[in-house]
């Protein structure tokens, strides 16, 4: 892993006004910032936090979908779901590696996740009680993730931007796969349609919350926009998502659970868009702060995997050391 040499490296900078202005000028010229480049501490910290959260979301995100692997209703769906959950793990690995280029280790980040210090996307604190949820997660959750992540392919930090190109390609496949599950349900029996509608009812609002608080209440947004880590505001992306998704729900014959949803031809500078009802921000903050249905269970599952696997990781290290010692001894003989 090329990032290893950077872990613990002294990335300290003397942040004079001249230094900051020069850095901002590079950003404004759309130059990519690379691991060995000097960067303001705030830039580094923002990226470590964001990439770490993103990686954790991929890893925790394996759990709600993993819940259905052994119970998938057909072998084709089972294979696709396995591949999908495996992709999420791969994204996690990719992103941890990108974060490592900023001087933190995967172990540090994992410990922060397990101790509750680091956050992950709140959407994964909702349960998946039915098979339809596997379709809905692909369609809405991966759909919202793509909306958030496409602009990240142009993020100013090189390793993150490059990682996101591949991640977005796979997410786009997942989104279509999820939608296809729902097409099967909506073309199926009455029970299947009900299962799909019930799932949309539960996931619609949490998916809209994935874009984060209103712009006015988003604490990190302004500086991130200036550094070109972030390219669009939370509300802009949320609106884009709603406008793209409502016709997809109509095609499925499902009802979006928002009585105030209404086409507004004036919106988006005259291009038209949907007006929507208010989001329940109390629920949003409750889940962010740990009070969602699955917050405790998700971390418990991750902690169990980590603790139960400790002896395996220790054995792998011990074995590697034994081999290295034997090689040195053989060379000396």
């Amino acid at each position: 892993m090329y990032s290893q040499g950077l872990i613990g490296a002294d990335g300290k900078t003397e942040e004079t006004e001249e230094f900051l202005a020069k850095f901002q000028a590079r950003i404004d010229r759309e130059e990519k910032i690379e691991p060995n480049d000097a960067m303001p501490e705030g830039y580094r910290k923002t990226l470590v936090r964001q990439i770490g959260q993103h990686a954790h979301s991929e890893i925790v995100g394996m759990l709600p979908e993993g819940n259905w692997i052994t119970r998938a209703p057909s072998l084709r769906r089972k294979a696709a779901l396995l591949a999908k959950v495996q992709d999420e793990g791969g994204h996690g690995l990719y992103l941890y590696s990108a974060a490592e280029t900023l001087g933190v280790t995967r172990e540090q980040m994992t410990e922060e996740l397990l101790s509750g210090k680091a956050k992950y996307s709140s959407i994964f604190n909702y349960p998946t009680p039915t098979w339809a949820d596997i379709g809905t997660i692909g369609w809405l959750v991966d759909g919202a993730a793509i909306m958030n992540q496409i602009p990240l392919c142009r993020c100013s930090y090189g390793p993150y931007a490059r990682a996101m190109i591949r991640v977005c390609k796979e997410e786009s496949f997942h989104q279509r796969q999820g939608y296809e599950i729902l097409i099967s349900l909506c073309n199926g029996t009455e029970e299947q349609k009900q299962m799909a509608q019930d799932s949309l009812n539960r996931w619609w609002w949490p998916s809209l919350m994935m874009f984060g608080p209103h712009d006015a209440e988003s604490s990190h947004s302004e500086q991130s926009m200036k550094w070109k880590i972030k390219r669009f505001s939370n509300d802009e992306l949320r609106q884009k998502f709603i406008d793209a998704t409502v016709p997809q729900a109509e095609y499925l014959g499902l009802t979006v659970p928002d009585p105030e949803l209404k086409w507004n031809p004036e919106k988006n500078g005259g291009k038209g868009g949907y007006d929507h009802g208010p989001l329940d921000w109390d629920e949003f903050w409750r889940v962010v702060k740990g009070g969602g249905r699955m917050n405790v269970d998700r971390i418990k599952a991750r902690k169990k995997a980590w603790d139960d696997g400790a002896w395996v990781r220790e054995a792998a290290l011990a074995h590697a050391e034994k081999r290295a010692t034997r090689r040195t001894q053989q060379a000396a003989e």
């Binding site: 692997i69 396995l82 495996q86 995997a305 990781r313």
Partner: peptide, 29 residues
Amino acid sequence: VSEWCGHAPLLEEDLAMPNMALDMIGAAR
């Protein structure tokens, strides 16, 4: 093998075990 997915001792195995499960289920199909 698929029961391990998301619960492996290390992330690399969270990728490797679904891979083996996919091979097995593919052959079964």
